[in-house]
Design a protein around this nucleic acid. Sequence first.
DNA 1: CCTGGAATTCCACAATGTGAAATTCAATGT
DNA 2: ACATTGAATTTCACATTGTGGAATTCCAGG
Lengths: 269, 269
Amino acid sequence: MDTHPASSADGARVVRRAVSLLREVSAARGNGATLKVLADSAGLPQPTAHRLLKVLQDEGLLERDAASRAYRLGSLLYEFGLAAVPRVDARRLCAGTLERITRAVGDTTYLNSRSGNDALCLDRREGSFEIHALPIEIGNRRPLGVGAGALAVLASLPSAEADAVIEANAKRYRRHGLTAERIRIYVEAARARGFAITSGRIVARYRGVAIAVGNGIGGVPASLSVVAVAERLDPRRIEQVARILIREEKSLREMLSIAPDSHNESPVP
Amino acid sequence: MDTHPASSADGARVVRRAVSLLREVSAARGNGATLKVLADSAGLPQPTAHRLLKVLQDEGLLERDAASRAYRLGSLLYEFGLAAVPRVDARRLCAGTLERITRAVGDTTYLNSRSGNDALCLDRREGSFEIHALPIEIGNRRPLGVGAGALAVLASLPSAEADAVIEANAKRYRRHGLTAERIRIYVEAARARGFAITSGRIVARYRGVAIAVGNGIGGVPASLSVVAVAERLDPRRIEQVARILIREEKSLREMLSIAPDSHNESPVP
DNA sequence: CCTGGAATTCCACAATGTGAAATTCAATGT
DNA sequence: ACATTGAATTTCACATTGTGGAATTCCAGG
């Protein structure tokens, strides 16, 4: 009946489903995600999810906590990650920038990038001030738009694309007490302001300031952000932090436009 | 016909196949592997492999070099890798050891671990002497037994298990100009000697010395190895290097037995 | 222009994966 | 101790999904 299934949907449903489970597991914070949660966040019937998760576990892509029954990413994925050196290494390119921002503001700093409809935490520097209950770990994902860093990335996308992302993430926003509508408003605000801030209601008690990186790092949209307990980020301080971010983003952007991609094979004899 | 195919082979063939393709891609050196190669090293008919690879690429687990048509690990795997922090981080635990060995010998040093039937290069320190045509990169895999580091790991396994691995890898050894029989001899030699050395014929021009780490790191068999151009490793020098490795392995082993696993969640309020 | 090896597409067929329903298990409240 | 509830797991009859041999296209080298 419906002629247009989706995109290149040839013989591969299971694989797609399996990968989407991996994504869900990877999106789960802290101690992993339970079958139930994974099943319906991936939109799969429970038994199906169960079967697939079992295989993934058996293959080493996932591990399972004996006590909580929760799934987490497995060691094989870690190993693949070692081998999958990105053509342009955002982490390394931004290391200095992150360092400098952290020293300047004293709070925790993040490097985020876009991955599909998610924002991904690529790197982080802990500020001296931070209460050590850091909300976001390296490798964590959340829907684009949720949190300052993720919001800056979303706002940096071309309108049409941003809309598509928001559309696709609509359901997921609920879980964070948000709606697509609200996100659209935030995006507008961030665009108008030139940088993104969060109310401190998304991740309770915390507030963030973030700026998008030029037009991305190696073509991938990205952002730099600073997060602190809400009290530490009153309007005055937000301005200060924003100024620092703007400055650092500018010099990073210049650096990126000069830096040749981080070739591994240098043609030098 | 045969009633029970293999192990827990419930509804999952495709996923298993897909994963084994990922493994093959990850095993491929340098600039990736071509469809043909992947298809038959994974034991799949070409069209099937093609179809699966296409999906994996589409999902971001693989990338494809436009020119050479070769597949390589994709950015999503890198991202998963960031999130998949291992419960006990061998790389970090051995950083000091590796550093010290490299300073002491001046040649390139490797940390290897077992991953299934493969040896995996977990980390590496470049020695001052090294001609910069390093054969093995972080994340690379080769069959257990091929190369000094991989041989030490293999030799450290219980006999029965080592035999099983050798058996399973038999076909793959061919590609390195080796045979299961020869590997068995090497393993015996390594066990007798207490450390592993390679003839310099496996990776031409290079020779290696390696020692297994106690009974592994966090339960995973591992080894420390030193690789240099063959001329630099005459018998006398091999002895010197071995002595250093033995010493460092011992202190590493002691350190590991004290060090609590790197818990992330401390139960402190 | 041909030729051989690789990549890609086709498509008839059935094995593989599916998911509703039933069952077991574990935690929690009474 | 005994229900009660919600999650995890197993089962199984069914058809959708994935299969792979064969045919086709695409290139690179001669």
